[in-house]
Amino acid sequence: MVNPLLILCLLISSSAFAAEAIRVQPQRTAVDGSYLYYTDLLRLVLSNTSKEYGDAELVSISRLTQARAFQALHDNLIDVFWAGTSREREVFVEPIRIPLHAGLLGIRIPVIRKADQARFDSLHNLSDLQQLSACQGDHWPDSDILEANGFNVLRATKFEVMYQLLQAGRCDYFPRGINEVYAEVSHISRNDLMIYERIILNYPFPMYFFVSRDNPRLAERLTKGMEQLAASGELLTFLQQHPTTRDIFPLSRLSNSWIIPLHNPLLPELTPLTDRRLWIELPSRNSQSPTVP
């Protein structure tokens, strides 16, 4: 007969060493190929800090739009959310100010319809591009940034419909972060879209992990873990080797692209722009006019 006291001791011991559940968003859609980058990076940070803070595991909750996710984070319904930052967002939740992709989120490469390549090749100046329509998220800071720089933006609430809008001709291009675009386009079932590397929109726009202000221990843990990765160079190595981002490199192939520098009026004052460990710059010229294709 099993000793009841032994069972009770085993249950108490198992409970004491149970991993902490860290609630995160699920993958939005199969096209959201960059999702694994964030969860793998988060697991790495949690693993590297487990001796001091204990074991933790990720638990997915219901799918949320960015606006609802930030509200859920504020209300302690999720524990970690990753997104581009803005002044408004940093007022209500706690940012971990280590850019997750060394600032590459602000390097935006258009996805276009293959049938429109000649049309984009014929663009001669910034105003030509501004007359076209860009698909973007309704609550994304990118939409406000593009509009503040004179671009036409078609806003959509759900990420999964944006590529469909592009394919249907509702917008002319979908600017995606260089850290996102290759993984996403590789997951699109139809073969009518292409990554158009000749044009690059460039603005300072770091993506961070965010946590609730009511969870300072988790904020401290993620800050320590991310700072360790950045200081050791492991964060850059992770970026260069992860399956969803390794196709970004080498960046030298973009040296002849038409780089369009844009102003980000939403950038918080505490953004660590002067910490060169945290950023990667394009090895190319800035230009207001394209080269001949």
Rank of each mutant, 00 (worst) to 15 (best):
L8A: 15
L8H: 04
L11V: 11
A19T: 01
A19K: 15
R28M: 12
L36C: 02
Y38T: 03
Y38Q: 12
T39A: 05
V45H: 09
N48I: 00
E52K: 15
E52D: 14
E57Y: 03
R63Y: 02
L73E: 03
D75R: 15
N76T: 02
T85M: 10
R87G: 15
F92Y: 12
E94V: 06
R97T: 13
I98N: 06
L105M: 14
L105Q: 09
I107H: 12
I107G: 00
I112V: 13
Q117A: 14
Q117C: 00
A118G: 07
F120R: 08
S122D: 13
L123S: 05
Q131I: 00
S133W: 11
S133E: 02
A134Y: 04
C135N: 06
H139F: 12
I145M: 09
E147H: 03
A148N: 08
G150V: 05
F151G: 05
A156L: 12
L166S: 07
E180R: 11
V181C: 06
S186C: 01
R190H: 10
R190S: 14
Y196G: 04
E197C: 06
P204D: 11
F205R: 04
F209G: 10
F209D: 04
F209T: 05
V211I: 06
V211T: 15
N215A: 14
A219F: 11
R221F: 08
L222W: 05
T223C: 02
G233F: 06
L239R: 07
L239W: 03
Q240I: 01
Q241F: 01
H242G: 08
R246I: 00
P250F: 05
L254V: 01
S255D: 07
N256S: 14
S257G: 04
I260F: 08
P265K: 08
E269G: 06
T271W: 04
T274Q: 14
D275Y: 03
R277T: 07
L278W: 04
P283C: 07
R285N: 09
Q288C: 02
S289M: 10
P290C: 05
P290S: 04
